[in-house]
Computed example of a mutant assay.
Amino acid sequence: MVTDKNCRMCNASETLQKSHIIPRSYFKSLKDKRGQLFSVTCGGTSEAKLTNSDPKEYLLCRECEQYLSEIFERYGTRLLKDRRKVKRSGDCVIFENFRFKEFYLYLISILWRASISGLSKYKHINLGDEINHLLCHCLRENKIKIQTSLRLDHFFKISLIRIVDKTGQIDEDAIRKTMIDLNFERGEKLDDGILYYFMVDGFLILYHFSSEKDIHTVRTKKNFAQILNKDRLYVPISDLGDFKQLADGFSSLTKHAVKHNKR
Rank of each mutant, 00 (worst) to 15 (best):
A48H: 02
K230L: 10
G35S: 06
T45H: 12
F27L: 10
E141K: 07
T178Y: 09
S149D: 15
R83F: 05
P236D: 09
Y26K: 10
E185F: 01
L134M: 08
I71L: 11
L68P: 08
A174V: 11
D54T: 10
K33R: 15
Y197E: 11
C10V: 10
L190D: 09
K5E: 15
T217H: 14
K5M: 11
R34W: 04
H256W: 14
H260K: 15
L127R: 08
T41P: 00
L127Q: 09
T220N: 15
G187L: 12
G90F: 04
Y207K: 08
D82T: 00
G44W: 03
R140W: 00
I22A: 08
S109R: 03
L195G: 06
D191R: 15
R162K: 15
R62F: 00
S252N: 12
D239N: 15
I94S: 09
R176M: 02
E73R: 11
D192R: 10
L79D: 07
G128A: 04
G249A: 13
L240Y: 04
L135G: 02
L190H: 08
N183W: 03
N223S: 12
R34P: 00
K230Q: 14
A48P: 13
D4C: 07
C138D: 03
T45I: 10
V218L: 06
D239F: 00
S159F: 03
G44E: 12
L119A: 06
N52F: 01
R186A: 06
D173C: 00
F243L: 10
E70T: 15
S149C: 08
